[in-house]
Amino acid sequence: MDVHAKHVEFVFTAYGVAALLLVVLLVYVLVRARLIRNRLRMLEREGAPRRRRPSAAPVKAEDELPA
């Protein structure tokens, strides 16, 4: 590649902007994944249950089967 060619600054700018955006995307994806993993570890350390326990609320009248 001839770095002194006509309009070569447009090539450098295009590659620079693309590389910058891809690096930002990569950092965003990695940081997001790490934050979510850390949150999961924190919840596990605190002993949070994996699933909601079945409710002990009384069965509503409309849910009862007809006799």
């Binding site: 979510i36 949150r39 999961l40 919840l43 605190e46 949070a48 249950p49 994996r50 699933r51 909601r52 326990r53 409710s55």
Partner: peptide, 12 residues
């Protein structure tokens, strides 16, 4: 999974 655990904790 985190959301499920947070909801479960709020529920408990």
């Amino acid at each position: 999974r985190v959301r499920q655990m947070e909801l479960a904790r709020v529920g408990s």
